[in-house]
Nucleic acid binder design. Structure first.
Length: 221
DNA sequence: AACCAGGAGACAT
DNA sequence: ATGTCTCATGGT
């Protein structure tokens, strides 16, 4: 018999396939913020080069980024692509971050206000904001990316064309959104990305697993 | 050698 | 509200 998939069931399947992901790959909350901007529509391997450049230049720091000349900052982050755009975005985020007094002060903000303030920074859209809110501030928000929409549309769990907030609300409603959901949201998004990167190149998610019978598009998850 | 990557903003409709 | 362009490097 083919039962309808729940978001929990998909999570369990991903977890069994890929194991714990230990996200976000960064050493400090500020580094999470930098990575969140630099990885916009960009492979993470390229972001690693850019962050390594910043670290080597001792510029992985908000003050250093704000005072760095555009040209030098652009040179450091060049491997992550869109370097002219991202130079502006990174500076803007750092200016805001320093204006608010840094991580300790921001941690005192309610989640909704923190998210809204991040969204007001030019260059920070919903996914980047939620990356930061979840992985740098450990608040219960589910991060939606292109992998998320693609996977769950193919699973038949989301109708095509839904906006960011609609998809996010679906996950919040079905999984809960109290503080206890933070570890789940952390791991779930990381697993979706890991699966998205390996999609069908290693092993299809629905091959030889309990999603197979329920998957309307088996073989291309 | 085309195609894609852990998006977002500007702009037209 | 919704669609189309643009931004750019590095791996397959």
């Amino acid at each position: 018999m083919s039962g309808r998939l729940s978001l929990r069931a998909v999570y369990e399947r991903l977890r069994a396939e890929y194991g714990g992901q230990q996200w976000w790959p960064a050493e400090t909350p500020f580094e999470v913020m930098v990575g969140a901007v630099l990885t916009q529509n960009t492979a993470w391997t390229n972001v690693e080069r850019a962050i390594a450049n910043l670290r080597q230049a001792r510029a992985l720091d908000p003050e250093a980024i704000v005072r760095a000349p555009q040209e030098r900052l652009a040179e450091w982050i060049r491997p992550s692509g869109y370097f002219n755009v991202k130079t502006e975005r990174l500076k803007g985020l750092c200016v805001w971050y320093l204006e608010q007094g840094g991580h300790a002060w921001l941690q005192g903000w309610p989640t909704a206000e923190l998210r809204a303030a991040l969204l007001a920074v030019k260059g920070v859209g919903p996914e980047t904001a939620d990356d930061i809110v979840l992985y740098a501030f450990h608040r219960p928000v589910f991060v939606v990316d292109t992998y998320t929409k693609r996977l769950f549309e193919r699973l038949g769990l989301l109708e095509a064309g839904l906006g960011y907030d609609a998809v996010q609300q679906r996950f919040h409603q079905e999984l809960g959104r109290g503080d206890e959901a933070v570890p789940l949201f952390n791991e779930y998004h990381a697993l979706i990305v890991e699966h998205g990167k390996n999609r069908c190149r290693k092993r299809p998610l629905c091959e030889g697993c309990d999603l197979q019978r329920d998957c309307p598009s088996a073989g291309q998850l």
